[in-house]
């Protein structure tokens, strides 16, 4: 990993831990914005600029504002301490989980990322068909868009219906509830 990557790992780790430990919620939201900046840089460094762009718009932009609107209903903690006290049993459990997940990282096949000759694909036949025939079948140049909107169009339509129904349900509940 390059020097930029190592420095970014340190930055993201520090912001993630600080987000958990800071007592004031507003401070946590601000530091979480910084975490989002680091993650977007990471995605860009790993040559996934589209994911980085999404992280910039959703993570740093929309999420921060939604969280700010939400904490308007809360009150600030009393006292001058910056960091919260650590719940050690929970911290140990989280640490063990992180080490367990981290120990699987070396076993991820890396042929795909280092330009090996045999790409790691779950269903090579299906994926190969999509990549070769997408333009001939659908006339869409982006393979991902073609799969989502053409090959699995009904699936995507169903997802849209579910999300729409959930939104309508939330609106109905919010409008009938009386806050006293």
């Amino acid at each position: 990993m390059s020097a930029v990557g190592i420095a970014l790992v340190a930055f993201v780790a520090v912001t993630a831990v600080a987000t958990v430990l800071v007592r004031d919620v507003l401070s946590a939201i601000i530091i979480f914005g910084a975490y989002s900046l680091g993650m977007a840089l990471f995605y860009t460094l790993l040559l996934a600029p589209d994911v980085g762009l999404t992280e910039a718009a959703i993570g740093a932009g929309v999420t921060t504002i939604l969280l700010l609107v939400t904490i308007a209903k809360t009150t600030r903690p009393i006292g001058d301490r910056v960091l919260a006290s650590i719940n050690w049993p929970a911290a140990v459990v989280v640490g063990v989980l992180a080490v367990l997940i981290g120990s699987t990282v070396p076993y991820i096949p890396t042929d795909n990322f280092t330009g090996g000759l045999t790409p790691v694909i779950a269903n090579p036949n299906v994926t190969g068909y999509y990549l070769e025939m997408t333009y001939a079948d659908t006339g869409v140049t982006n393979a991902v868009t073609a799969v989502l909107a053409a090959y699995r169009g009904f699936d995507t339509f169903g997802e849209a219906v579910v999300v729409f129904a959930a939104g309508v349900a939330v609106l109905v509940v919010l409008h009938t509830e009386v806050f006293s």
């Binding site: 020097a3 930029v4 340190a10 600080a18 401070s27 601000i30 530091i31 914005g33 840089l41 910056v82």
Partner: peptide, 28 residues
């Protein structure tokens, strides 16, 4: 770029320590 990321970690001190919210906003 690597040096700038290291400097970002240094700025992070101000974002976490504060003490006022304005410090944190400027830090971010």
């Amino acid at each position: 770029a690597a040096v700038l990321v290291v400097l970002a970690i240094a700025v992070l001190y101000r974002a976490i320590k504060g003490p006022t919210m304005q410090d944190r906003v400027i830090a971010v």
